[in-house]
Write a protein that binds this DNA or RNA. Structure first.
Lengths: 210, 210
DNA sequence: GGCCGAATGTACCAGTTGGTACAAACGCCG
DNA sequence: CGGCGTTTGTACCAACTGGTACATTCGGCC
């Protein structure tokens, strides 16, 4: 029987899963410890036993979310010989990836509201982000060597352009959607919005340098 | 003597100004009514007298912030004859504009965390956003007529690309900055980041349609 | 000057919230 | 089986927090 009355690992991970939902929904201050506990098979006491404080729980949520997302990102593998195809694929896969992980993007937005004060306390996150940059570097280098890519752009610039667009789709969908009376999350519009970021990056990179 | 002991207008506007700062800093749930009042020459009582509730105050803050920003946006006037110059200028001025209004962008981020539930209650905001779109429409039309702009892109797409980039610079500076060890807000880097969004939009729009 | 409604200040409250003291139950190991 | 460290549940609290009752003061108007 799996119905173990005592299962430290399960208690901990259930707490983490529920806390992720609640923090993503209500923010750090908006989330209530009692609320998180109530949605669990265990009690508030366990939050303090395993995580020490509301803040400790939030930090654990943030860390796990980042690890999970980086893991998922490694699956984005672009092996096109042509750098133009490769960069377009990377941009559009990044779009898909972000659209599919809105809870994570909400957590990131919340963390930025707090000026990144919690993320800074988490060790080892930085190295986790290097693969994404490495792949970009490699594609750009091939494109430049082939003479098809402009030379006044580096991997961070490209990552910034792609991330901005993809994050904004999710993070700002409510205000942007309201002001311009458009639903960015609508399935009908997805293919177009997806193609746009591909077009943007390819058009930009294949244009002549200033 | 300007030192009026009683000045309804001043009390109200001081409350609004301080509340804007506090909400932008701490979010809706994070902000404390007592804290806002304490930073004022008046008392908490006045918040309830003028705004009815914490939520009423937040709504007033949001509305005033949007009106202010749209006002400022109307100053962005691009009168280049060449649509390519015009669109580059628009993109780069939008960048400057966003970088200079980070409190507003924080409020927008906070509002999106709340899924836009407050902004929806504010009447007349939608019409306020139309000028920006109108100007874009006009530039795009000229560019298409001249044969220099691709035809598979509309004003909303362009606005989305520009806004994404400019908002991200400010809204996500902390997490992005931390993960890639770069300070997006550094004055040294501004000219480059500013040029990038110009290059992106021009390169994209002047490339051939798919 | 005296009236009256708008504006303001003080004191207070009830519900909420993060956090904890204490003890009990569990299950592994010898 | 018995002991012992880990894990869990209950009850509780002190501080905080949004909100308000009530009294008071101000300033314009007749």
């Amino acid at each position: 029987m799996v119905e173990a009355r005592r299962d430290a690992e399960r208690t901990r991970s259930e707490l983490l899963a529920v806390a992720t939902e609640v923090f993503a929904e209500d923010g750090f201050s908006g989330a209530r410890v009692d609320d998180i506990a109530a949605r669990t098979r265990t009690t508030k006491r366990m939050i303090y036993y395993y995580f020490g404080s509301k803040e400790g729980l939030y930090r654990a949520v943030l860390e796990e979310a980042y690890r999970g997302i980086r893991e998922a990102e490694r699956a984005i593998d672009v092996d096109h010989a042509d750098p133009v195809d490769a960069i377009r694929a990377l941009a559009e896969l990044t779009y898909d990836h972000h659209v599919g992980h809105d809870a994570f993007i909400r957590l990131v937005a919340i963390e930025n509201i707090h000026r990144g004060s919690f993320i800074r306390q988490i060790e080892g996150l930085r190295t986790l982000s290097q693969p994404a940059k490495g792949m970009l570097d490699e594609i750009l280098e091939r494109g430049r060597a082939a003479g098809t890519f402009r030379t006044d752009v580096d991997a961070i610039d490209v990552h910034l352009v792609i991330s901005s667009y993809c994050v904004f789709q999710v993070a700002n969908q409510y205000t942007f959607g309201h002001l311009f009376d458009i639903d960015l999350a609508s399935a009908d519009r997805r293919p177009h919005l997806r193609a746009v970021i591909g077009d943007v990056v390819v058009g930009w990179l294949t244009a002549a340098s200033r």
